[in-house]
Design a protein around this nucleic acid. Structure first.
Length: 963
RNA sequence: GCCUCGGUGGCGGAAUGGUAGACGCGGUAGACUCAAAAUCUGCUGUCCGCAAGGACGUGUGGGUUCGAUACCCACCCGAGGUACCA
């Protein structure tokens, strides 16, 4: 019988399903192992060959661990909330529930065909109320906790209130709060500054095209990642997560996990920790002046009078003697109060111009220097010089204090600014390896000297010090004077958590109207009681914002909270006494994907997020497989989410993922036709002279192109606009251009896995995807090699056709045990491409030996099972009629004694160059080798009577002769 | 600019400081066949040579080593990430 995957694959898929072969229990004597894939967003396009790459790799590893006696958790689910389903709903009126459900079913069908070992009993969907109940629950916990900087962990907000009461918490002026004297509005305002989930007016990335705000990782170059719409900065009242509280732990945790160096680096850059100093610069105003709005008072040791001043952050305090001007960001609150009357008009014009620029404009004009002088001066606290204060948008409001000391000699941006406005440049560092007399005056420089490798000059008490020492010396001095301190700044921003969208988790939040002391009404947010969760997403039919500009949930009629009866009621009942409006925005995509790995541990628990026993057993994810594009989004949020759950005692490990493998993207190979610029029905073949100037390339479906030759008839039939197409051919053929790009529907370069499964079988697809190259490497999809893998499986099948019960020869056993050793090693190293090669070698060897012996082929079927489960299961049952699944077997062990040789064929090198081979017993010593080489006839022509200077003998490796 | 990873035949890619190019694709010659497909076997880095054989060869230049694709230094090229972050 020939190998026919279409017969055996559905059979075993059904068998595994019926027997629940892959079902995992939470309790076992076996060691545990958790293998997780990043769950997919079920898009309408279905799977292409790039998606399963990581799933195949993790599937192999999960099966391997299982065969090695581990209790393996290997679940799958769907990240089902998201923008595309909602955009689709706006266009077609089709409810996102329906599209999502349909897409999920399609995904499941495609996944099942590839034969994965997921425990589908543990499936989760982020849009399922029984799942998002715990997303909402976690939000409530975040709302009810604050970050205790002393304990370095999240603590209940009640503890904070206690501290405020005791006067242990102070305001910026250093005064204690009078908690008991505060009204509810003031109390809630104060607490809001500490909650880990908080509501605040913050500058957000507003995307009008999508009608919602976006997190920083959802914006690239001022455009939204989804859809590519422009994004602007806008001040809005939004929920945020205080992820910045965890910045240091997120950096530190990277040292404890096994991620690729590049991914760690991306995360470190994203968090952007920088060490430096905060320094107060006094304003040059009469010292008895009242503190100006936006200015702070400080009291240097040398001057007991409070002095109006402002704070800057610098990583180079050593260059403070080189400060020649100061710069404030256009949003700085000090600008109004210090600008002189002569400069006022100019400054106001500049500030309003700068504020109205979109993010995209600002980012695309980074190299253009702009700014304006305020007319005001600050005083350098170490030199007492008067320094002009400027305003420029190269200083960003969101980082540090939005104000800097400018040292044009040693900062490239300050340098450019100084050149533009003719400000002085003063050198205070000479680079390492340069003599002072070799330095040219700064006026002649074309760039600043930014390197920290150097010696301070013209810098008062730090002159002559190395920069690194000078930094510390200056900070110590500032600290002593009471005008500065050592501090750390992070680039990481708090995560904006509100989306003005429908298809997401509702916030379990309602708003009460409360009067403050002045009688003004305030909408104060309160969380629903935990026991009332889930707060289900209401059904609506119009998914656009309301006419008053509210998010789509504004259309929901039954969307108010009855506090007394603890239930959702109709909006018309809102009386702001017992019935209150509910929050209208929903949570972002990362809400549901941040803690899903924990829910898999105990997905049907309706009492808790997950049970204590389950998390104590599984701990955290041992192996996580997914794309590196999630480095600054999901991977940061999930680590934050886990650290919070760890702090409040739910998670048992500080880091959620022990080891991460980033599968490389499978790129598509796109084909192009070239349309004439003057005649839209004329298409010119690639290599016709003049084609390049006179045509525009257009993507063409790869399915109507064979070997870059276009099937012109199918092209005409492909789309109506090409029905009248005419062609300028070369050698009677139309040659297409090609390019490696992202695999995407819009580029018509998508390879659907179903077609390949139908043609070659799932096992061939699995092996081929692995054989393409290292899992972690990006690679273009190319079906050319798949025939080779298909041929291998046919040979492999043939090997078992005439199985016999004979005692294997030593040589056959050697092939077996070598293969066991290699495959085990390959899997441990995650080198699945070499594993497939090694299977091919093994099969070729056994066919050459004509070996079909049960004792040899049995173990090889088990080795093969993780890679090609269907064929392995089929052959296992052929070998062992009546047996249970091959996945109930034990991974074979390599018997090293079979591999032991009595002699070894040494490559003999002369001066490092391989010349001939020499067989020596394993017991041979260096002296034996010397004897043998000198006596070997082959050696004579290389030695040619010269003396052997040295002989290097490495047992079982090589003999190298130096002459 | 900075950070990370990479650069090996016609192609995908092997090689833990020890025979570079495993394995596969492609190419080529042959076997089987009336023929083709399928299958099987041999050859297939470059150059010189009829051959035996030899020289060269892992982006470039240096270094360490008996020996370097691998380690170190400098540079070139490519991919990805990231940026007025003070």
């Amino acid at each position: 019988m020939n190998y026919n995957p279409n017969d055996i694959e559905p059979k075993w898929q059904k068998y595994w399903k019926d027997n629940k072969t892959y079902r995992t229990e939470n309790f076992s004597d076996k060691p545990h192992f958790y293998v997780l894939d990043m769950f997919p967003y079920p898009s309408g396009a279905g799977l292409h060959v790039g998606h399963p790459l990581g799933y195949i790799a993790s599937d192999i590893f999960a099966r391997y661990k299982r065969l090695n006696g581990f209790n393996v958790l290997h679940p799958m689910g769907y990240d089902a909330y998201g923008l595309p389903a909602e955009q689709y709903a706006i266009q077609t009126g089709q409810h996102p529930h329906i599209t999502t459900e349909r897409n999920i079913n399609r995904y499941r069908e495609q996944l099942d065909k590839i034969g994965f070992c997921f425990d589908w009993d543990r499936e989760v969907r982020t849009c399922d109320p029984e799942y998002y109940r715990w997303t909402q629950w976690t939000f409530i916990q975040l709302f009810n906790h604050y970050y205790d900087k002393t304990l370095d962990k999240a603590r209940p907000i009640a503890e904070l209130i206690e501290k405020i009461r005791k006067g242990e918490v102070r305001d910026e002026q250093g005064n204690a709060y009078d908690w008991d004297g505060m009204d509810e509005v003031a109390r809630q305002d104060l607490l809001m500054n500490y909650r880990l989930a908080y509501l605040a007016d913050i500058p957000v990335n507003w995307c009008a095209g999508l009608g919602t705000v976006l997190a920083n990782d959802e914006v690239i170059n001022g455009l939204s990642v989804r859809g590519g719409y422009p994004v602007e900065r806008k001040l809005m009242r939004q929920w945020s997560l205080r992820i910045t509280a965890y910045a240091q732990r997120l950096v530190d945790g990277l040292d404890t996990v096994d991620f690729s160096e590049s991914l760690k680096e991306v995360q470190r850059n994203w968090i952007g920790r920088s060490e430096g100093a905060a320094v107060w610069f006094p304003l040059d105003v009469p010292s008895n002046a009242n503190v100006l709005p936006g200015a702070q008072a400080y009291m240097p040791q040398c001057n007991p009078q409070p002095v109006p001043s402002f704070e800057i952050f610098t990583t180079r305090p050593d260059t403070i003697f080189g400060v020649t001007f100061m710069v404030l960001c256009p949003e700085h609150e000090l600008i109004d109060s210090i600008t002189t009357d002569e400069q006022r008009q100019q400054v106001q014009d500049y500030v309003s111009w700068a504020k109205n620029r979109s993010e995209r404009e600002r980012q695309s004009e980074v190299k253009k220097v702009s700014g304006v002088f305020t007319g005001a001066y600050a005083v350098n606290p170490l030199t007492n010089e008067r320094i002009p204060i400027w305003v420029s948008d190269y200083v960003l409001a969101g980082y540090g204090t939005g104000a800097i000391m400018a040292v044009p000699a040693h900062d490239s941006r300050d340098f450019a600014f100084a050149r533009q406005f003719n400000l002085p440049i003063r050198q205070v560092v000479i680079p390492a390896g340069t003599k002072p007399e070799d330095m040219t005056p700064p006026e002649t420089w074309t760039e600043s000297i930014d390197s920290k490798a150097g010696i301070s000059v013209n810098s008062g008490f730090v002159t002559g010090m190395k920069v690194k020492d000078a930094i510390h010396a200056v900070i110590d001095k500032l600290d002593e004077m009471g005008i500065g301190y050592r501090t750390i700044n992070y680039r990481l921003r708090d995560a904006i958590f509100s989306r003005q969208r429908y298809w997401g988790e509702p916030f379990p939040v309602y708003f009460k109207q409360i009067k403050d002391a002045d009688g003004t009404m305030h909408a104060i947010p309160y969380c629903l009681p935990e026991e009332c969760l889930p707060l289900c997403l209401p059904e609506i039919s119009d998914f656009k914002p309301t006419s008053t500009g509210e998010p789509p949930l504004g259309h929901a009629q039954k969307w108010a909270w009855d506090e007394a009866n603890r239930q959702v009621v109709d909006k018309s009942l809102i009386d702001n006494v017992t019935v209150f409006p509910l929050e209208l925005s929903t949570m972002p995509g990362f809400a549901g994907s941040s803690g899903y790995y924990l829910r898999y541990m105990d997905p049907r628990n309706n009492e808790r997020y997950f049970s204590e026993q389950a998390v104590n057993y599984w701990q955290n994810v041992d192996l996580y497989v997914g794309g590196s594009e999630h480095a600054t989004g999901h991977m940061i949020y999930a680590r934050f989410w886990n650290k919070f759950l760890f702090d409040i005692g739910l998670a048992v490990k500080d880091e959620p993922f022990r080891k991460l493998i980033n599968q490389g993207m499978i790129q598509g190979r796109s084909n192009f036709v070239y349309r004439s610029k003057t005649d839209s029905n004329l298409f010119i073949s690639k290599n016709i002279p003049g084609r390049e100037e006179n045509t525009v390339p257009i993507h063409v479906d790869i399915n109507i192109v064979d070997n870059d030759i276009l099937d012109v008839e199918r092209f005409r039939a492909w789309r109506p606009e090409f029905a009248e197409a005419r062609f300028e051919l070369e050698d009677g053929k139309y040659v297409c251009g090609w390019e490696i790009e992202k695999m995407s529907k819009s580029m018509f370069n998508v390879q659907n896995p179903d077609d390949l499964v139908a043609r070659y079988g799932a096992d061939t697809l699995r092996l081929y995807e692995m054989f393409l190259g290292p899992v972690e490497q990006a690679k273009p999809w190319d079906t050319n090699g798949i025939e080779g893998v298909a041929r291998f499986l046919k040979k492999f099948w043939r090997l078992y056709e005439n199985i016999v019960d004979e005692v294997p020869t030593k040589e056959e056993l050697k092939v077996l045990h070598q293969t066991i050793k290699k495959i085990t090693d390959d899997i441990e190293r995650f080198s699945f491409n070499t594993a497939v090669s090694n299977f091919m070698i093994c099969t070729n060897d056994l066919l050459a030996l004509n070996c079909a012996k049960r004792e040899v082929v049995g173990p090889i079927v088990i080795l093969m099972a993780p890679f090609a489960p269907h064929i392995a299961e089929e052959l296992w049952h052929k070998l062992n009629p009546g047996a249970s699944s091959v996945f109930d077997e034990q991974w074979p062990v390599c018997d090293e004694s079979v591999l032991v040789e009595s002699s070894f064929e040494y490559p003999v090198s002369f001066n490092g160059k391989m010349r001939f081979k020499l067989n020596l017993p394993l017991t041979a010593t260096s002296d034996d080798a010397m004897q043998a080489v000198v006596n070997a006839p082959e050696a004579q022509r290389w030695i040619e009577g010269k003396a052997v200077k040295k002989l290097v003998f490495v047992p079982k490796k090589i003999i190298n002769v130096v002459i």
